[in-house]
């Protein structure tokens, strides 16, 4: 057994092509990003080496830390929303009528490009003609909120859109994982008299714990580098109230022509992701698996 499964040549054959692709197309840009971060460069003309100046500025840049806080909040909300996705997936995995159809319907939003999703949510949040405020006005609310224009609400308004946008992504992963649980285990528990909630909690969840851990990492890392809807829906405004790390980085690099600083922000973001992933690995490590 060990001999066959330890064949060095086979391992190399299986791993190297993919490793080659990512080392060239991902590690090369990562290294260059770190390198640009040491430069004073507008992305257009000559570069000048400034050492760690950009990184030093970063540590005292209030706007950066504000946007970092927003990114962390998004990460927290996305992780919490995994519970909701999981519950929906568990219900749909049960033997209820129409679950196949419902599951397909639930995944529809993930097919839409962010351009479409942003337009939809702009229409939902429009302060005068929007779906929510039309409804609120109809039921007699006078001072309807202005959502995306309100510095206190804007971030959470977008979070709702993002959480909705990603529902399909996680439900499809959880659904596939739940389908992978052998029917016999569930049947055995039923014969023993377990109710659906007990089956879900005691049998299904432990069996897909590996998948759950993966989705936690995906949700956190994905949130920390999230960009799309925020950039289209608010551009980070009003006055930075919905700025996140990636949109801040983009503005620095592409709009304000401080490519060196933007790269430093990008590289720092990568470091934050690494540290957090490492922490998650430590916190959720278990004996019988490879730690990831």
């Amino acid at each position: 057994m060990n001999k066959v499964m330890s064949n060095k040549w086979v391992i190399a054959l299986y791993v190297l092509p993919a490793l080659l692709v990512i080392s060239v197309l991902i590690y090369f840009p990562i290294i260059l990003t770190g390198y640009y971060g040491l430069m004073d460069w507008d992305g257009i003309g000559e570069m000048t080496f400034v050492g760690l100046e950009n990184y030093a500025n970063l540590l005292t840049d209030e706007k950066f830390w504000d946007s970092a806080l927003h990114s962390f909040l998004l990460a927290a909300f996305s992780t919490l929303s995994l519970v909701g996705y999981l519950i929906i997936s568990l219900i749909l995995a049960g033997k209820i009528k129409g679950s196949e159809l419902l599951r397909k319907i639930y995944l529809i939003p993930m097919l839409l490009s962010s351009v479409a999703i942003a337009q939809l949510w702009l229409k939902i949040y429009d302060p005068n003609n929007g779906i929510i405020n039309s409804f609120l006005t109809a039921v007699g609310v006078e001072n309807t909120p202005v959502w995306l224009a309100d510095s206190n609400l804007v971030l959470y308004s977008i979070f709702v859109a993002i959480i909705w946008q990603y529902a399909g992504f996680y439900i499809i992963i959880y659904s596939a994982a739940l389908k992978g649980i052998p029917e016999s285990l569930v049947e055995a528990a039923k014969i023993d008299g377990a109710n659906p909630i007990q089956i879900a909690y005691k049998i299904k969840l432990p069996l897909i714990s590996g998948v759950i851990k993966v989705t936690i990492i995906l949700a956190i890392v994905g949130s920390l580098k999230y960009f799309d809807l925020i950039y289209v829906m608010t551009g980070g405004g009003p006055n930075g109230a919905s700025e996140v790390i990636a949109s801040y980085m983009y503005k620095q690099a592409f709009s304000t022509n401080d490519f060196g600083y933007g790269s430093a922000v990008g590289f720092f973001l990568l470091v934050i992701c690494l540290v957090i992933t490492w922490l998650i690995r430590k916190l959720t490590a278990s004996e019988d698996e490879i730690q990831y």
């Binding site: 302060p127 005068n128 202005v146 224009a149 309100d150």
Partner: peptide, 16 residues
């Protein structure tokens, strides 16, 4: 100014 102007893009504002 129109309600919620800080959240409206120019295209939307023009729509009004």
């Amino acid at each position: 100014f129109v309600k919620g102007f800080n959240g409206l893009g120019n295209d939307e504002a023009k729509g009004y």
